[in-house]
Design a protein around this nucleic acid. Structure first.
Length: 595
RNA sequence: GGUCCGGUAGCUCAGCUGGAUAGAGCAGCAGCCUUCUAAGCUGCUGGCCGCGCGUUCGAAUCGCGCCCGGAUCACCA
């Protein structure tokens, strides 16, 4: 809040005192360390060269200037090269004027081109797992953060609904399905299809073992196994629009979508637009042949088409197979173009795991070769893998944590813990069920989002269901406390609406600590947007909750004899509560009124 | 081998656009509920910030070299 003002005035001071212009960004302004008297600290070492005076003297001169020319500065104290400024209580109290503004810290929506943000991007042959959860949470949160920074965000999902892997589960279903449906089996659609994908692999494994016994290598055996050949036949039928094949494909996919929809709903994520690879790959093919015509790509004797990136330090990259079918890159070229056609976005963000860094590097370079203006608008938000304590979180190795199971377990744990604590004795069943969901999902989401996206993270199931300390439920609890305090205040006859805070009050250390954290919120939102990091919001809201709890524990609110102070503390509480709620909403986490 | 990312307390993570004695949580130990919700609060224990050199008044933070871990470099997606 006051940072910009202080920085600007410091520049003015340096210019007036020493005759040199400096940029506000170059002012080293930070929160004063806790043990030291002061609110904000300016590091003056960088100005010593300009002032040609000792650090202490420089700091004192700037401090003097600021305290005379800025009414907000109450006093200053110099320690070595550090100028510690204390702001007036009135200045801090003015912060509370924004306590009822639900948009505090957010920027209004700007009239500009939209940002297209892709996340989730599932395969239709297997249910969502822990890795997808990180992806979905990051994508959803990022959309909220960018929106809070004034961007018009369009959330899109790209469903990978075609290709050989889909044909595999189709084949297994044709062989072993007996017309089983989600209804007849009692399985969620995506789990049902996942089951057949696994069955295909079992069939293939058996055949591969036989072939290897006959002397084939593993690779040959895989390619020549009868089920694999059958699956490829299905793919060819699909591409030639064979009615029966398409019909089965449609039916099986529709089951999967029902399942996904449920998982997304449970997770609390949504999309403005869903793209299907089956609808975009043809456009990709067009782009490739266009590039071939213009001599940008090359065709080999076997008919395959390649982009040559060797002069850029990379290799050659396949764009179209020799049999004319498309690869991953073909499809992504198509979707990028389609997205550009649909929205003309100022940027296209892809939330995709870091194992695809190379892919996106190539995608951008190929688009540059095609002279697509939007190539520079593509941004890959690359996030790290989720690892499990035993080993890696890879779908092939079997140690998969299913998204639905995980959410279920978190909610169940929330329920038992909450019941043990006797928190819901006076709740209706419906209220209680809502609360268990809120807490269980809050724990899960916070646990995942508090880690810097670009880092690999460890998902320890035991730690994730801990509700104490740096966790989602801790923050939710702080919010519930504040709400409780508010309703008690109402019962005691204190009317918050329309009651102004006495601006002549003096504030104590605990009160100021909370307000210092509150004051940072707008900058944190901005920073999280620039760095595209929900973790910054998560770490901030934890600090706020911790600070508020200290205040709550040490400072009486309703038992304070001085009524004007009661109103002050209620105002601080209200503002802290609103910011907790805002922050959590940026993470896609709900907060309960009671818990 | 090339490229990219990481290495901070027993564990999980902040801090990294250089600044004061490196911060949290968990785990461990000791306390605080007849007072606004104890999913809370207080205190203690615990660190050659991977290693070395350099830049600087000042380096966990920047640069170079090395060591360790991960990802990636498919006619898979």
């Amino acid at each position: 809040m006051f940072e910009q003002k202080l920085a600007a005035k410091t520049c003015e001071a340096v210019f007036k005192l020493y005759g040199k212009e400096i940029l506000p960004d170059s002012v080293g302004l930070e929160k004063t360390k806790k043990e030291i008297e002061g609110d904000y600290t300016i590091v003056v070492f960088p100005f010593v060269k300009i002032s040609r005076k000792a650090p202490e003297i420089t700091a004192a001169e700037i401090g003097e200037y600021l305290s005379i020319n800025l009414s907000e500065v109450k006093s200053y104290k110099v320690i070595k090269g550090f100028l510690n400024l204390t702001l007036t209580d009135r200045c801090w109290l003015s912060l509370l004027e924004s306590r009822r503004n639900p948009e505090f810290g957010f920027s209004p929506l700007r009239k500009e081109l939209p940002v297209v943000l892709e996340y989730s991007s599932p395969n239709t042959n297997k249910p969502l797992h822990l890795g997808h959860i990180r992806n979905n949470l990051l994508g959803f949160s990022l959309a909220a953060i960018l929106r809070a920074n004034g961007h018009h965000v369009i959330k899109v999902n790209l469903v990978n609904d075609r290709g050989i892997h889909i044909c595999k589960s189709m084949l297994a279903y044709m062989k072993l399905g007996n017309n089983e449906t989600p209804v007849s089996s009692g399985l969620k659609g995506d789990h049902l299809i996942g089951k057949y994908y696994v069955l295909f692999n079992d069939l293939q494994k058996a055949e591969v073992a036989d072939l290897k016994a006959k002397g084939l290598t593993a690779e040959e055996a895989e390619k020549q196994s009868p089920v694999m050949l059958e699956a490829q036949e299905i793919l060819r039928k699909w591409e030639s629009r064979d009615a029966e094949t398409i019909e089965l494909w449609r039916r099986m996919n529709s089951w999967v979508y029902e399942g996904f929809e449920q998982t997304y709903k449970n997770l609390g994520v949504d999309f403005d637009r869903i793209y299907y690879e089956s609808e975009t790959y043809l456009l990709g093919k067009e782009l490739v042949s266009e590039g071939l015509e213009h001599g940008i790509f090359t065709k080999r004797s076997d008919g395959s088409i390649w982009a040559d990136l060797r002069d850029e330090g990379l290799d050659e990259k396949l764009l179209l197979r020799s049999d004319g079918t498309s690869v991953y890159m073909t499809q992504d070229l198509g979707t990028a173009q389609l997205r550009f056609n649909d929205f003309h976005p100022s940027s296209m963000i892809y939330v995709v795991g870091n194992e695809q860094n190379y892919h996106f590097d190539v995608l951008k370079r190929v688009l540059v070769k095609l002279r697509k203006s939007y190539s520079s608008h593509i941004f890959h938000l690359s996030y790290g893998m989720v690892e499990l304590p035993e080993g890696k979180m890879k779908s092939r190795e079997g140690t998969v944590v299913d998204a639905d199971d995980l959410m279920e377990e978190m909610i169940t744990t929330a329920e038992s813990t909450t019941r043990e604590l006797g928190k819901v004795n006076d709740f209706s069943d419906e209220e209680a069920t809502d609360l268990f969901r809120t807490i269980g999902l809050g724990a899960l989401k916070y646990f995942i989002l508090k880690v810097d996206p670009k880092k690999n993270m460890l998902f320890d199931p035991v730690e994730s269901i801990d509700f104490n300390g740096n966790t989602g439920p801790f923050i939710q609890y702080t919010y519930a406390r504040i709400r409780s305090l508010r309703s008690r205040a109402g019962e005691a006859g204190y009317h918050l609406a329309g009651t102004a805070v006495d601006e002549n009050l003096t504030i104590n250390a605990r009160e100021k600590e909370v307000m210092r954290v509150i004051a940072q919120f707008p900058l944190v939102v901005k920073q999280a947007g620039l760095e595209m990091s929900p973790a910054l919001i998560a770490n901030y809201v934890y600090e706020l909750a911790r600070e508020y709890n200290q205040f709550y524990q040490e400072v009486p609110v309703l038992k304070e004899p001085d009524t004007s102070k009661i109103y002050l503390r209620l105002a601080i509480s209200e503002m802290a509560g609103n910011i907790i709620k805002s922050s959590m909403s940026l993470l896609g986490i709900e907060v309960p009124d009671r818990m």
